[in-house]
Design a binder for these strands. Structure first.
Lengths: 336, 336
DNA sequence: CTGAAAGCGCTTACAG
DNA sequence: CTGAAAGCGCTTACAG
């Protein structure tokens, strides 16, 4: 299986390598006849240009990296797929990189910039914290998806596209209160962080406060939002504590919580209502169907790619886009 | 944010580019003093070698592509993560490519070979069919994971690592029969194909036949193994037909089927037992817990990478490895 | 142990 | 419309 180079093709088609390169890149300045001749040879050889050589030379060929934190997160996978689809219509090439939740996406970004000369980055499911100091002298366009950079050190340089986490959490908890729930347990992340989970914690607390209800420390359960962790946390909480409803900061966590309730002989929603966040497809197939704050996956993707392109193509400044989420109440929430 | 080249580093460290390259590649033939001097400069500049330049030159630098068919498939994602972990210990670099289920992974492989000069491929969740004729003159090592190439045109050239699909399906259905189920509906793919789904179909049929039971055409429901498709197929089937148990060829399909049963007011497992395949983590968190044929994710990954390395490093011939799967009976299957 | 030079396969001014 | 030549940033014999 010979791998042909542009030079081989040039020889076989009896033209210069320059001409082959032109045909390869769909440049207009090639006569039809020459173009067809070259194209025929390329097809016969299944010729595919060497991406390394191209990457080495090409100055303006845009390459954007999509860095996704958490390969196993179904919501982020839906988002990754949607971004890939939007990318098809873009002139820039996209590369997708999954990194482990324990790894540092900012270090990875730096490496990618050096290694592959990427010219744009989309961070999916990232967390803005002290580590982002590393991005201090990155000067290529960056977009954070699902988390807002507003109010962070990155605000002026990195765009963001996200839902209004605080407001949606408030609305979600208000919906629970409106249905007569009073004791709402919250399963979430570090409430002091600077990420979407902290905003959700704040929103939940606000809704309760507005009704004169406290959120006792014991009823805010800090946990990783995985099946295992949420399951274990809920098992521990519900063995002693109690609640009318559980507001979980991801659908995955909600599934863990539902299973723990089931283990303890508590029915959902008769004994405890459960509400998640994300709106992953599987939620609608559970029994009972999971209520959730559905993130608009397609729009998050579309806007993220759009904002990045504005920055890359027109040098537009960083923007912060809020997209609408939808509270979807299904069977897992009852009226008391 | 300046991006440094090996040349900049050489100048700053007052050595030749050759020497910098040696340090970069951890070659032994550099004096400790020089090595440290260069390393200090590289670190100060956050220097990262240009992967395009390296890829262009490096002849023996192995690069393996992992091509995964179906980004949204949780089982394949677990597998992809496990393969990535095994890859860390390998000398070769790994790139992961997700492709849509409707796209052609073999065409993609051909492009990757030309574009990036990859020297090894792992196909994850692929299907062996007529399209594989494209691979006719690919002469780099290939491994198919989750599907056997035994008995196909690829047998002699491509290795494979998979469970014994036929046997596991037989055992699964036998377990249902042993528990008193007689009418087993099967939700699967094309029973005439040459992939793992066809083998599972055959295994299921054999188990029934061994007990003198037929598998009426109506009770073999051909469907895509997605939540939506399986849900719709089950809704249609169970509205008229009936069965004691549903054997579903993926856990995802099983979840769609369970929801359809729930919609029709049929309880799992009291009215219908449900059994899936794959052993994805979420299955254990459903209520009722999903019974399944659990694929050994870690071992599939380990063996796939191992067999590929044998082929790449020692020119070993294609091998076909069968790994053990485990029938895990949980709450979704009852004894009648 | 160290360096000068060739070359990997492309693209891109520049000249015609 | 077409081509000769320089150069992208590395690695690798080869020579010292």
């Amino acid at each position: 299986m010979k791998i042909y180079t542009i030079r081989d093709i040039a020889q076989m088609a009896d033209v210069s390598v320059t001409t082959v390169s032109r045909v390869l890149n769909d440049r207009p300045d090639v006569s039809r006849a020459t173009q067809e001749k070259v194209r025929r040879v390329m097809e016969a050889c299944h010729f595919v240009g060497n991406a390394h050589a191209r990457g080495l030379k090409q100055a303006e060929g845009d390459l954007v990296a999509v860095i996704i934190r958490g390969r196993r997160n179904p919501f982020l996978n839906e988002l990754a797929e949607a971004i890939s689809q939007c990318a098809q219509e873009s002139r820039a090439a996209f590369v997708t990189e999954y990194i482990d939740e324990r790894d540092d996406e900012f270090s990875r970004a730096l490496t990618l910039i050096g290694e592959r000369r990427i010219t744009g980055i989309i961070f999916v499911g990232s967390r803005i914290d002290g580590r982002c100091a590393k991005l201090a002298d990155v000067n290529i366009p960056m977009v954070f998806t699902t988390v807002s950079t507003l109010g962070t050190a990155l605000e002026a340089r990195a765009s963001s596209v996200s839902i209004d986490d605080e407001r949606m959490a408030r609305e979600a908890v208000e919906a629970l209160l409106a249905r007569g729930h009073r004791r709402v347990a919250v399963f979430g992340g570090d409430p002091e962080g600077a990420d979407s989970l902290a905003l959700r914690a704040r929103g939940a607390r606000e809704a309760l406060a507005a009704h004169g209800l406290p959120l006792p420390a014991a009823r805010y359960i800090e946990t990783r939002l995985t099946l295992d962790a949420a399951y274990a946390a809920a098992l521990e909480y519900f063995r002693q504590g109690d609640a009318d409803a559980a507001f979980c900061m991801s659908d995955t966590a909600a599934m863990g919580v539902m299973r723990a309730l089931s283990d303890l002989g508590r029915r959902v929603p008769e004994d405890v209502s459960v509400l998640g966040v994300d709106g992953v497809d599987i939620g609608a197939f559970l029994t009972p169907r999971l209520s959730t704050i559905a993130q608009p996956v397609q729009e998050l993707a579309r806007q993220s790619v759009g904002v990045l392109r504005e920055m890359m193509e027109r040098g537009a400044p960083a923007r912060h886009v809020t997209v609408g989420a939808e509270l979807v109440l299904r069977e897992s929430v009852r009226s008391m």
